[in-house]
Amino acid sequence: DAPDEFRDPLMDTLMTDPVRLPSGTIMDRSIILRHLLNSPTDPFNRQTLTESMLEPVPELKEQIQAWMR
Rank of each mutant, 00 (worst) to 15 (best):
19 V>F: 03
61 K>Y: 11
3 P>D: 03
9 P>I: 05
47 Q>E: 13
15 M>F: 01
57 V>K: 03
4 D>F: 15
15 M>P: 01
46 R>G: 15
24 G>P: 01
31 I>M: 07
44 F>L: 06
48 T>V: 13
5 E>K: 13
56 P>H: 07
6 F>R: 02
35 H>M: 12
8 D>I: 02
19 V>K: 01
58 P>G: 07
22 P>M: 02
1 D>V: 13
17 D>E: 08
19 V>P: 02
4 D>M: 15
25 T>W: 13
57 V>C: 13
31 I>G: 04
22 P>Q: 03
52 S>W: 12
64 I>N: 01
20 R>M: 09
5 E>W: 14
6 F>T: 02
18 P>K: 02
19 V>M: 09
64 I>L: 06
6 F>C: 06
50 T>F: 12
67 W>E: 07
52 S>T: 11
23 S>V: 01
39 S>R: 06
19 V>R: 02
53 M>F: 04
60 L>T: 01
22 P>E: 01
12 D>T: 08
41 T>A: 07
22 P>K: 03
48 T>I: 13
50 T>W: 09
26 I>E: 01
58 P>M: 08
38 N>E: 13
33 L>Q: 09
56 P>N: 10
5 E>Y: 14
31 I>R: 02
6 F>L: 05
31 I>E: 04
44 F>K: 04
18 P>T: 01
34 R>I: 11
68 M>D: 09
54 L>R: 01
33 L>S: 08
20 R>E: 03
61 K>A: 10
25 T>A: 13
45 N>D: 10
58 P>F: 09
9 P>W: 06
10 L>S: 05
1 D>S: 13
24 G>I: 02
68 M>W: 14
67 W>D: 08
8 D>A: 03
28 D>V: 04
15 M>V: 01
27 M>I: 07
56 P>R: 08
51 E>D: 08
64 I>E: 03
8 D>G: 02
62 E>Q: 13
21 L>M: 06
55 E>F: 08
25 T>N: 11
45 N>I: 06
28 D>T: 02
56 P>Y: 08
4 D>G: 13
36 L>R: 00
4 D>W: 14
55 E>W: 07
7 R>Q: 05
38 N>I: 13
44 F>Y: 07
33 L>A: 08
59 E>R: 09
67 W>P: 05
22 P>Y: 03
37 L>Y: 10
32 I>C: 04
27 M>R: 02
46 R>T: 10
67 W>F: 10
33 L>N: 06
18 P>Q: 03
67 W>L: 07
31 I>C: 08
8 D>Q: 02
3 P>A: 05
26 I>H: 03
10 L>F: 09
67 W>C: 09
43 P>D: 02
51 E>Q: 10
65 Q>A: 12
19 V>A: 02
34 R>N: 12
57 V>T: 05
4 D>H: 14
48 T>M: 14
35 H>T: 03
42 D>Q: 00
57 V>H: 07
16 T>Y: 12
42 D>K: 00
27 M>F: 06
29 R>A: 05
58 P>V: 09
6 F>S: 02
46 R>C: 15
23 S>C: 06
38 N>L: 13
49 L>D: 00
18 P>V: 03
40 P>H: 11
69 R>S: 14
66 A>F: 10
9 P>M: 07
39 S>C: 10
20 R>C: 06
63 Q>M: 14
34 R>C: 13
31 I>H: 08
16 T>F: 11
35 H>E: 07
27 M>Y: 05
44 F>E: 03
2 A>R: 05
58 P>A: 09
22 P>C: 05
29 R>Q: 05
67 W>G: 07
44 F>N: 04
7 R>T: 08
10 L>I: 11
2 A>P: 15
59 E>H: 12
38 N>W: 12
49 L>S: 01
56 P>V: 07
41 T>G: 05
45 N>P: 01
67 W>V: 05
29 R>Y: 08
59 E>W: 14
50 T>C: 08
24 G>F: 04
49 L>K: 01
3 P>S: 04
39 S>E: 12
6 F>Q: 03
44 F>G: 03
65 Q>L: 15
10 L>N: 03
23 S>Y: 03
37 L>F: 10
53 M>V: 05
5 E>R: 14
53 M>Y: 04
48 T>Y: 15
49 L>R: 00
49 L>T: 04
14 L>D: 02
58 P>H: 11
14 L>Q: 03
7 R>N: 05
21 L>E: 00
62 E>I: 11
39 S>H: 10
11 M>F: 11
68 M>A: 10
66 A>S: 12
44 F>S: 03
47 Q>G: 10
64 I>W: 02
15 M>S: 01
26 I>W: 02
19 V>E: 00
16 T>I: 15
7 R>Y: 13
26 I>Q: 01
69 R>I: 13
42 D>N: 06
55 E>K: 11
22 P>L: 04
61 K>F: 10
11 M>G: 09
28 D>N: 05
4 D>C: 15
62 E>C: 12
61 K>D: 04
14 L>C: 08
42 D>P: 03
66 A>P: 00
39 S>T: 11
24 G>S: 04
10 L>M: 11
47 Q>C: 10
47 Q>T: 15
67 W>Y: 10
24 G>V: 02
41 T>K: 07
21 L>R: 00
51 E>T: 09
42 D>A: 00
41 T>L: 10
19 V>W: 06
32 I>Y: 00
32 I>T: 00
42 D>W: 04
37 L>E: 13
53 M>G: 05
34 R>E: 11
62 E>Y: 12
17 D>P: 01
45 N>F: 07
46 R>D: 14
40 P>I: 06
68 M>L: 15
1 D>P: 12
40 P>R: 12
4 D>T: 14
9 P>N: 05
13 T>E: 08
25 T>Y: 15
33 L>C: 10
68 M>F: 11
50 T>E: 11
16 T>G: 07
15 M>Q: 01
36 L>Y: 01
53 M>C: 05
66 A>K: 13
12 D>R: 15
3 P>T: 04
29 R>V: 06
23 S>L: 03
41 T>M: 09
11 M>C: 15
55 E>M: 12
32 I>E: 01
46 R>V: 07
26 I>G: 00
17 D>I: 04
59 E>F: 10
68 M>V: 12
66 A>T: 10
46 R>Q: 15
42 D>T: 01
48 T>W: 15
63 Q>F: 08
55 E>L: 11
12 D>V: 06
13 T>W: 08
48 T>Q: 12
15 M>G: 02
39 S>A: 08
2 A>F: 15
15 M>C: 05
57 V>E: 08
49 L>I: 08
13 T>I: 12
42 D>M: 01
47 Q>I: 08
63 Q>Y: 08
45 N>L: 07
37 L>C: 10
30 S>Q: 13
13 T>A: 06
1 D>E: 14
59 E>S: 12
61 K>G: 06
27 M>N: 00
2 A>E: 07
12 D>I: 06
25 T>G: 06
17 D>H: 06
37 L>I: 12
33 L>F: 06
24 G>N: 05
37 L>W: 10
40 P>E: 11
8 D>P: 03
25 T>I: 15
56 P>F: 08
55 E>I: 14
21 L>P: 00
17 D>L: 04
56 P>A: 11
29 R>K: 12
52 S>M: 10
49 L>G: 00
38 N>K: 14
52 S>C: 09
4 D>R: 15
66 A>L: 12
7 R>E: 02
1 D>H: 15
35 H>S: 06
